[in-house]
Amino acid sequence: MIERRERSRGPVDPGVLEAVSTLVIEVRRVVEGLQGGGHASLHQGASVEFAEHKKYCPGDDIRHIDWRALARTDRYFIKVHEREVTLRCLLMLDCSSSMAYQGSRATRSKLDYARVLLGAMAHVLVRQGDAVGLLPFASLPLPHLPPDRKPEYLPALMNRLASLQPAQDGGTGFVEAIHRAADHAGRRAMIVLATDLWDADRDAEVALASLASRGHDVTLFHVLSPDEIDFPFNTTATFEGMEGDGGVQVDPALVREDYRRAVIDMDLRWRRVTGEAQMDLVSATTDKPPEVVLADFASRRHRATRRQ
């Protein structure tokens, strides 16, 4: 009963929400939105942010004529302002069966961890007036929530997050999920994926790169249990795949070093892929507090925005 009550209030602990309440998540790229907001848009418009002067042409709104410039130069100039819009963010959550893994040292499964991570992020984004949507994915298509900026939309999103369960059958449907995201995100949105990337192959890399090339600000939270990184097992055992990919009987002591090296290689590969496609890759190990991961991410974003 207690667990149910917690679930009804959402997947994110109040402590986490409090920790992320002061965070501001900025976009790295310019985005497009319907309403005015805090993020830079490709289009000029009404805003406090001055962009440039241009010569008055017939048809321009005379309200935008800079009278001071006319008095000084005796010429008509129109003041052009940069338009600021709200952000559309699509949160993608990997609900494949491998996300149910918790490991010996983490306090929650990867899915729970990703749930908290994305929930907290949604909270931050809605608080700063951005529209947030949710696209869970697994081997089979799952219902999604389109982006919405209304504060009353947040509980519905949280409930949706809380109700998600790991899939019972194998596979992630990663590429299909990317395509769906491309369809639902519209133009130049922020797309955040929380996944363990175990089922992400070469096609997934291409699909992600294609998503980024369309102008989306793509961020990848690589959610892994510490056991998946260190492989700390001692006794010979049959390690059974969680997505119907069979088993292997090994003595951990013998393969541990090779495994760790392979995990590092995989991480390096994904960093290269995301770097080339101007995506962000954030390592989210489930023994690390999610608020810390989010804070790091927000801080990194802030620094990157200032550099631009």
Binding site: F233, F239, E240, G241, M242, D245, L254, V255
Partner: peptide, 19 residues
């Protein structure tokens, strides 16, 4: 043997095969 569910079995197989 003891059976342990593990997500990264694909990688484990590739590593074990070399041994």
């Amino acid at each position: 043997d003891l059976v342990i569910p593990f997500p990264a079995v694909g990688m484990l197989k590739r590593v074990a095969l070399r041994r």
